[in-house]
């Protein structure tokens, strides 16, 4: 099937579902080509598992070009593997050595329960967004797009925050399993843009409250999140969010539930 010359040992976390205990199972990945992506290597392993009539390793993935944020995998101590600023689907086997043992684990966080093998439930991220990660406008009846001039530097900075793909690597990398980088990226994006000002201070409170409710850890500014983010979202977003949050709590009229309607 595959025609490469790499042979690897995989230690893969297998877990039937969220209620069952999991364990590591060792697999051989043979004749792997260095040009394969990491997920293609797993595809090959899965094909051989299925031909034996056994259940393939389950992992989340979709676009395989680093933008949908669906793939995860904690590979040899690092989310999305050893390379900087890429997702697992963009990782290629040439980043590994022939004969190497690769440990593959799911994201570990109380807020991200394992649903099967290497896949976790990241709906906590959706719920945080639902708590206020938007500008409350209906379709239609909005002003002309050019009626709101936005300085380029602000637009660019907001864009940098907006590039987050919601993969959860920040949580996975953080020693505290904190979701601050993710939450702050969204808060920052909308908080910087003129369109987002109206709800700026209620939004940050609602989103932080939801984040706390989901059971993520607390940020200690270690910077692991920033280092592992495939889109290189910066820690500055966290500071910006903190500023908005304290400003909201101590100096503004806005309440968290203003956004609930």
């Amino acid at each position: 099937m595959s025609n490469g010359n790499m042979n690897l040992t995989l230690k893969v976390w297998r877990q039937q579902d969220s209620k069952t205990a999991g364990k590591f199972v060792t697999y051989k990945a043979e004749h792997i080509s260095p040009d394969m992506s990491f997920l293609e290597m797993l595809d090959v392993v899965n094909e051989s598992i299925m031909l034996k009539g056994e259940e393939p390793i389950y992992f989340d993935h979709d676009c395989r070009e680093g933008i949908c944020g669906m793939c995860s995998l904690y590979i040899n101590g690092r989310p999305h593997g050893p390379k900087r600023a890429i997702t697992t689907c963009q990782l290629h086997m040439r980043s590994f050595k022939d004969g190497q043992t690769i440990t593959i684990e799911p994201w570990r966080a109380a807020a991200f329960p394992v649903i099967k093998d290497l896949a976790v439930d990241r709906s906590a991220f959706d719920r945080i967004q639902q708590a206020g990660g938007y500008i409350s406008i209906n379709t239609g009846g909005v002003p002309d797009a050019n009626e709101i001039p936005i300085p380029k530097v602000i637009a660019d900075e907001a864009f940098n925050s907006a590039t987050c793909i919601g993969c959860g690597a920040c949580v996975a990398a953080c020693k505290n399993a904190s979701a601050m980088l993710f939450v702050s990226a969204k808060v920052s994006q909308l908080g910087m843009l003129p369109q987002g000002q109206t709800e700026r201070y209620s939004r940050v409170q609602s989103m932080v409250a939801q984040m706390d409710e989901e059971g993520f850890g607390n940020c200690t500014n270690t910077g692991a999140c920033e280092a592992e983010c495939p889109k290189e979202i910066t820690l500055t977003n966290i500071a910006r969010m903190n500023n908005d949050f304290f400003s909201a709590k101590f100096f503004r009229e806005a309440h968290a539930n203003d956004i609930a309607e």
């Binding site: 500008i135 379709t139 002003p143 797009a145 709101i148 637009a155 907001a158 994006q189 909308l190 369109q195």
Partner: peptide
């Protein structure tokens, strides 16, 4: 375009 800008989509400027 109007709708997306109002939603906070950061188009190039």
């Amino acid at each position: 375009i109007d709708q997306c800008v109002a939603q906070g989509v950061p188009f190039a400027r």
